[in-house]
Simulated scan of single mutants.
Amino acid sequence: MEPLFPSPYFRGLILVTALGFMALEYGLGRLVHRETHDWRESAATLGVAVVQNLIRLVEAGIVAVPFAFVYQHRLFDFSATSAPAMLGLFLGSEFLYYWQHRASHRIRWMWATHRVHHSPTKFNLTAAIRLGWTGNISGNFLFFLPLVWIGFHPFAVVAMLGVNLTYQFFIHTELAPRLGPLEFALNTPTHHRVHHASNEPCLDKNYGGILIIFDRLFGTFAHAPAQEPLRYGLVGGKRSFNPVRIALGEWIAMLHDVRKAVGARAKFRALFGPPGA
């Protein structure tokens, strides 16, 4: 889950709403005697989130340039008031988000950013806002340029991704029950817990944003293992409470591996091969 450049008003509204729901989740967890939070981890997450929001504000104008350029060369014009067009934008953004998210797990250059989001060892609403500082360096925005090129206004694309981001906030919890028939089509807390789990059967599964249908179509869907509890955090990773180390640790490790690698092919693999390869 990585945002592009939602407006400051939208981000402020999201922050206030998020803090309220985080407090509610913490209270419910205490009420049912569940250890849903680690205060040190949550404090580190808030540190990461503050810097991430400041960086996005600075980057917004820069990232807007390629979107504006592509929109000037669009193939068609789709109205933001047309229901069929908005349905197409929703499905298109979900499809591209699936591939962007999947690439973020399989390409180390992108994983260096996304790894931050998978580093918490407690799965809760606070963990939802632990997002990397380097999403635009990783190239996340490039995946959504085709939507602008075919004729959707950049603001419409960003708004739809904002809806995706908002929805995903609420599925980062262990306290939500299964949602019955909705589990087939929607990415629910049940499915997203699997995505964040570090159990072997759960790795690189359930990439969807709002929908889970593309995971079902492309073979990346998984249920939680029946005989073992879900564990969260990075496989083989060391937990840190330092926001800078959390946000930049994989970049430092990756560049170190590039320096050690012998030959152009090995250096390329260190940058763009699968994480851990």
Results as ranks from 00 to 15, higher is better:
L4M: 01
P6I: 01
S7I: 00
P8R: 10
A18Q: 01
L24A: 10
Y26N: 01
E35V: 00
W39R: 12
R40P: 09
A43G: 09
V51P: 12
L57Q: 12
V65F: 13
Q72K: 08
H73S: 01
L75W: 08
D77N: 01
F78S: 02
S79M: 01
T81Y: 11
M86C: 10
L87G: 04
L89C: 10
L89F: 08
S93C: 11
F95A: 11
L96Y: 06
W99M: 13
A103N: 15
S104V: 08
R106F: 10
I107D: 09
A112R: 12
T113R: 10
T113E: 12
V116D: 08
S119W: 11
F123A: 04
F123Q: 01
A127V: 02
I129Y: 02
R130N: 03
L131T: 14
G132C: 10
G132R: 09
W133Y: 13
T134P: 08
G135H: 13
G135Q: 11
G139R: 05
L142W: 05
P146L: 08
G151D: 02
H153M: 07
V158P: 04
L161T: 06
Y167P: 07
Q168R: 10
F169G: 04
F169A: 04
T173P: 05
E174P: 00
L175Q: 09
L179Y: 04
N187E: 07
T188A: 02
T188P: 00
H191W: 13
R193W: 03
V194G: 03
V194A: 03
H195L: 04
H195M: 02
A197P: 02
L203Y: 05
L203A: 05
K205I: 03
K205M: 12
K205R: 15
K205T: 14
N206Q: 07
G208M: 05
F214M: 04
D215Q: 05
R216E: 06
L217N: 00
F218L: 15
A222V: 03
A226T: 12
Q227R: 14
L230G: 04
Y232E: 01
Y232A: 00
G233D: 06
G236C: 09
G237N: 01
S240R: 15
F241C: 13
W251D: 13
W251E: 13
M254I: 15
H256P: 04
R259N: 14
A266K: 00
A270S: 15
F272G: 09
A277G: 15
